[in-house]
Amino acid sequence: MKWKIATSGAVLAAALAAAPFAQAVEISYAEVMAHTCAGCHGPNGSSVGPAAPTIAGINPELFIEAMRDYRDGFRAGTIMPRIAKGYSDEEYKLMAEFFAKQPFKRYDQPHDAKLVERGKRLHDRYCEKCHENGGKASAEAGVLAGQWLPYLQYQMEDYLAGKREYKEKNMKNKLTEMLEKEGQEGLKAVLNFYASQK
């Protein structure tokens, strides 16, 4: 059996434009593939926690980069290094496009409210330049606001232990500077600020 792969919204848009009153049920391979992630990352990529990250609303390039890094051994993980080996670059791209379109749903999560104000200030000083709009923007970097706190902690541990590669030199510089000036408590405050965001 030869599979017909509907690769993008453009194909669908063309189909809809050609026959606006025809039956509109279209299911793409991208969607079918992306739905297999829901068991851990939640329906449409918004995780209900407490640790597995939300991947909805992700910058598609970062999604592809993460999958390649897991596949090629440049990023530590638990099950993702095993799973990422199961897809081609083209399939990464299809899933990246799907998740980029999904809204990042934010849920209440446990965090230390006393740290939030300081975390916000430190975010503005050290992180906002790339993680814009209080960590909510996805255009330049990963969405941090509303991400699950244990996941953010794991990622910071991995960066600092050399198990996750810095993609931007600036991030390493800013993180190092912040830790020197503000210590681990400063980092904790920033992460708790993200966890407080809705």
Binding site: S8, G9, A10, L12, A13, L16, F21, Q23, A24, V25, E26, I27, E31, N59, P60, E61, L62, E97, A100, K101, S138, A139, E140
Partner: peptide, 28 residues
């Protein structure tokens, strides 16, 4: 890199606007 990322995302935004599934069937 940054500009490229923005461009990519905008492209996705455009397809998202039209790529809505599940429009009601009008079959009788």
């Amino acid at each position: 890199v940054q500009i490229h990322r923005r461009t990519f995302l905008q492209g996705v935004g455009v397809t998202a606007a039209v790529g809505v599934l599940g429009a009601p069937s009008l079959a009788l």
